[in-house]
Amino acid sequence: MAGALAGLRIVEFAGIGPGPFCAMMLGDHGAEVIRIERHGGGFGPRSLARSRRSAVIDLKTPEGVSVARDLCRSADGVIEGFRPGVMERLGLGPELLIGDNPKLVYGRMTGWGQEGPLADAPGHDINYIAIAGVLEGIGIPGQPPVPPFNYVADYGGGGMMLAFGMLAALLSVQRGGAGQVVDAAMTDGAAMIAAMSWGMRAAGLWRDGPGATMLSGAAPFYRTYACSDGKFISVGAIEPQFWAVLVEGLGLKDDPDFASQLDPSGWTRQIARLDALFATRPRDEWVDAFDSTGACVAPILTMAEAAAHPHNAARGTFIEVGGKTEPAPAPRLSGTPADPPTPPREVGEDTEALLAGLGYSPERIAELRAAGTFR
C-alpha cells in the first residue's frame, strides 16, 4: 500500500473499539497491519477491520503463542486491548516481545490504564469519561448528563491517542531509541481532550453541571435549535461579527433583548426568543436563509444526509468500501496520500500466507493446521 506509513508492520491482537480503530488508522495510511483474530472473528463491527490482513491463531496453545511471537519478531509495533495482565498470562507480554525484538513498540489500550485502583475493573466509555470529569458537563440543565455516544473515550481519547503514541514511539525508534510500551488509557485521553475546559476552569469561566457553560449550551450563540419540521439547526456564532450577522438575519438587530451578546443575565431570554423563532420554519429554509452569510449556522444532519452533503461529497469525506459507505481516511497528506481502504478480509484469510512469509515450510503449516493452531 501507498501512504506515509508504508514499510511499517504492525501486529494487532484483535479486540473491540479503540484498538481496532487505531489499527485502522495506521492501516489506512499505509502500514501493513496483521490482525490476529479469534475463531469466528470476535465481537465488533467489521468496518473497523479494513485496510489489513487477517490471521486466526489459537493463543491458548503453546504453538499458537510461538507463531504470534514469530510474527511480532518481524514487526515494528504491536497493538493489544486486553485488561492488564492478560497478555503476560498468554506469554505475549511486552517484556518477552521486546526481549525478542528490542525495537518493538508495544501499544496497550485500556480504559483505566496499566496501574491504579481501577486498573483491573471492567468499564466502558461512559465510565471513563465520568471519572475524567468530561461527562458531567454534557447535557441539558436540570437533567442527568447525556453520554455523547462512545466517541470521546473509545475513539478520541482511546484509539486516536494510541495512534499518536504509537507513531511518537516509532519515530523515537527511527531516531535510534529503544522499543518501549505505550500505555494508552481512555481516562487519560479523555482528560487530555478536555484540556481547554480545565483552562476555562482556572480562568473562572467554568460552571459545573450539564449545559452550564458557554460551549455546552448555556449561551444562545452556541447551541442547537428545533425547527418546524422536527429537524435541528446548529448555531456557533461565537465571535461578535458572526453574532451580528445572525441577529440581523433573524430580524432582531434593533431588539433590546439582543443588544448585548456576552452578558449571561440575558441569555435565558435570548434562548427563549430564538427557540420560538427557529421553530417557525423548516430546517432547510433556515440553511438557505443563512447560506454564505457567515453566521456560523449549519444543519444537523443524519448519517445518510451527511454522506450526501455537497461539501462532504466534494471532498470525498465518505467513500464506498466493499459496497458500504464509510468515512475516508483522515487526515489528508499532500505528499503521501493514502490509498483507498481495502475491505475487511475474511477472518483468517491470510494466515497461511503470513506463515509462509515467516519461512514456515508447507509441511509445518499443514501440521499447525491439523493441530487446530489456526484455520
Score class of each variant (00 low, 15 high):
F221N: 05
S66D: 15
S51Q: 11
R50I: 08
G372R: 13
A295C: 11
P310A: 09
G359T: 07
N101P: 09
G137R: 12
V245M: 12
I79N: 02
F278L: 10
V78E: 00
E305A: 07
I129C: 03
S66L: 10
I126W: 04
A306M: 08
A304S: 15
T224W: 15
F258T: 03
L301H: 13
G27P: 10
H39V: 13
L246W: 06
K253T: 14
W286F: 04
A307K: 03
S54C: 11
V56N: 04
E95H: 04
P282S: 03
R73P: 09
A119H: 13
G357F: 06
Q261D: 07
Q261I: 10
A195C: 11
G30T: 09
G177Y: 05
R50A: 09
G27H: 07
F164H: 14
G359K: 08
A191I: 00
A279C: 05
G316W: 05
P343M: 03
F290K: 00
N312F: 12
E352F: 03
L118I: 00
P282Q: 05
D339S: 15
Y155L: 14
E285M: 00
Y155G: 09
H124K: 06
A4K: 04
I233C: 03
L246M: 14
C227D: 00
A195S: 15
I319F: 04
T351A: 13
V347H: 09
G17A: 15
I300L: 15
H311G: 08
F149S: 14
H311K: 06
M109E: 01
M24I: 03
P45L: 11
Y360G: 01
T61L: 07
A370V: 01
Q270P: 06
F290W: 01
L167Q: 01
A2P: 15
R83G: 11
L8C: 11
P340N: 14
A191E: 06
A49S: 12
G199W: 05
P147S: 04
P327M: 13
R52L: 10
A314C: 08
T342Y: 00
A191R: 15
F374C: 11
A353Y: 04
E320C: 02
R53K: 14
K324D: 15
G139Y: 05
P337V: 11
G348Y: 01
M166E: 00
E248F: 02
V65A: 08
D275Q: 04
R281S: 03
R223Y: 11
P240I: 14
P122L: 12
A2K: 13
N312R: 03
A219M: 03
Q241T: 13
N101V: 11
P362A: 10
G335Q: 07
V235M: 14
Y360T: 00
P362E: 10
G177N: 07
G372C: 10
E346F: 00
T61W: 02
M161Y: 13
A330M: 10
G123N: 04
R332E: 14
V247N: 02
G335T: 07
A226C: 05
G113P: 05
A119W: 08
L358F: 09
I16V: 14
I233V: 04
A307G: 12
W267P: 07
A163S: 13
S228V: 01
A353P: 08
A308N: 10
E248K: 15
H311S: 09
G133C: 09
P84V: 06
F232Y: 15
A298H: 00
G230S: 09
P240K: 10
M192Q: 14
G137T: 07
